[in-house]
Design a protein around this nucleic acid. Structure first.
Lengths: 221, 221
DNA sequence: ATAGTTGCATACCGATTGGTATGTATGTAT
DNA sequence: ATACATACATACCAATCGGTATGCAACTAT
C-alpha cells in the first residue's frame, strides 16, 4: 500500500490528480481499478463484487490492486469517496451551489440525466442509493459515507431554495427543508420503481412528472 | 427434492399446511429452513446469504436442505412465495380487501407496525423492498415475484380507496390510483431513509407524518 | 552512476462457497 | 410382513473467495 510516499514529486500531471501516486503510470492503473470496481459494484453490489472479476475486466493483476488498496473494503470506500462523490458533486452540488433559480437548475439536471440515461442505468438504479441500502446495516464506513452524501445533498438543495425565495424565483410559501427532503425522496422512489420494474420508460415518466411538479413552486408573473 | 410425492397422505395436519411434504416432520424442518433463510436474507441479502450459516443456525444438515430445495435459488423463491408473501397478505391485502374505510385501516396498520417495530427491523428495512432492489437486475425470478407483489399491493389499495369514496369515507376528489402509488412510494421512502440513517426514530417520525397526511383525505363531517 | 523507492507480476494460501453422492433410519401402503 | 418412499445425515467435491509473500523492472533523487 502506498499511503506514505518517500518521494514527493511535483510532476506536471499532479496538477489535476492529487498525489496519491508518485508516477503517472500508478495513478492511471489506480483510476482504471476504481472505474472497474465501480462498474462491478453497481452491477452486483459490494458484497457480491468479485475482485477477480474486476482484475479480469481490466487486465490488471492482483499485485497491482493490493499495491494501491489495502483490502476490498478500502477499495469500496475509495469508490465512494472518489468516483461516486465526485460525480455527485459535479451533477448536483456545484450547479445547486451556484444558482438563485433552483427550480430551473433541478429541471435542467433531470432533463439532461434523462437524455443521457441508458437502459442499463435505469435497471441498475442509483449507485449511491444501492450502496446505502445494501451496506448501511452491515458496515459503519459505508453507512457514514452514504448518509453524509445525502445530508450534503439536502443541505445544498435547501440553501438553494432559500436563495431562490429571496431572488423571487421560488414562491415564498415554500418550506425549503420539506421541499428538499420531498424532492430527494421522490427521486429515490422513482429510481427504485424503475429498478424494480426494470423499465427505463418508467423512470423517464416519473422524471417528467417531477419536472412538471416543480413548476408549481415557480411564482406566476 | 420432493416435488412429486408417490404417497398421497390425508393426515390431519395437512389441513393447514399444503401437502408439499408427506410427513409432519418434513414440513416442520421445511418451515424452520424457510424462517432461517428469511432471517439470513433479511440481514445480508440473497447473494451474500450463506447456506452454511442457515444450517448452523437451525442445526439442520445439508442433506435435509437439499431434500426440500433443489438449490439456493429455489430456497430463495420459496422464501418470497411463502414467508414474505404470506406475511404481506396478512398485514396489507386482507385488511384492505375487507374494508370500506381504507384511511382508518391504513392508519391502524401503520400504528400497529410502529408499535411492534424493533430497532433491528428498522435498520434492516423492508425485506420485500430489499430483495426487489438487490435482485431485480440480476434474476428474472425474483424480479417477477417482487414486482407482482407491489402490483397486488397497489391494486388492492386502489380498489379500497374507490370503495371508500362510494361509502363516503374518502373525499370524492381523491385520485385513487395516484393516492395508492404515492402511499407506497412514500412508505418505501420512509423505510429507506430509516435504513440509511440506521435510526428507528426516523421511521416512527415518518410514520406519524404519513398517518397525519392520510387524515387530509377523510371527509369533514 | 547508484541507491532507493515505486509499480507491478506471479505464485501461492486457507477459508468458504454452493452442490453432490451415498448410506440409513423412519414412516406408509399393501 | 414386506416393499418402497420419505427424510434425513455424513462425507466429500471443485470452484471461488479475499488476501499474502516474493521477486523484479522501471523510475526518481542524489
Amino acid at each position: 500500500m502506498c499511503f506514505k510516499k518517500k518521494t514527493n514529486s511535483d510532476a506536471w500531471w499532479h496538477l489535476w490528480k492529487c498525489n496519491r501516486c508518485v508516477q503517472k503510470r500508478g495513478e492511471d492503473t489506480r483510476q482504471k481499478l476504481l472505474q472497474a470496481a465501480f462498474d462491478e459494484i453497481h452491477k452486483v453490489g459490494f458484497q457480491a463484487a468479485s475482485l477477480s472479476k474486476i482484475l479480469k475486466n481490466t487486465g490488471i493483476t492482483k499485485g497491482a490492486l493490493y499495491h494501491h488498496f489495502s483490502n476490498k473494503l478500502d477499495l469500496g470506500y475509495a469508490v465512494v469517496d472518489e468516483v461516486l462523490f465526485t460525480s455527485f458533486k459535479e451533477t448536483w452540488l456545484e450547479p445547486l451551489n451556484n444558482t438563485e433559480d433552483p427550480i430551473s437548475v433541478l429541471q435542467e439536471i433531470l432533463i439532461a440525466s434523462g437524455d443521457s440515461m441508458t437502459d442499463e442505468d435505469a435497471r441498475l438504479g442509483c449507485p449511491i442509493h444501492n450502496l446505502a441500502q445494501e451496506m448501511s446495516p452491515l458496515d459503519k464506513g459505508f453507512q457514514q459515507r452514504t448518509v453524509d452524501i445525502y445530508a450534503l445533498w439536502r443541505k445544498s438543495l435547501e440553501a438553494a431554495i432559500e436563495r431562490g425565495k429571496l431572488a423571487g424565483n421560488v414562491v415564498p410559501e415554500a418550506d425549503a427543508r420539506r421541499l428538499a427532503i420531498l424532492f430527494i425522496a421522490t427521486l429515490d422512489g422513482c429510481m427504485g420503481l424503475a429498478k424494480s420494474t426494470q423499465r427505463l420508460e418508467m423512470l423517464l415518466e416519473c422524471g417528467r412528472g417531477l419536472i412538471e411538479h416543480l413548476e408549481l413552486f415557480r411564482p406566476k408573473k
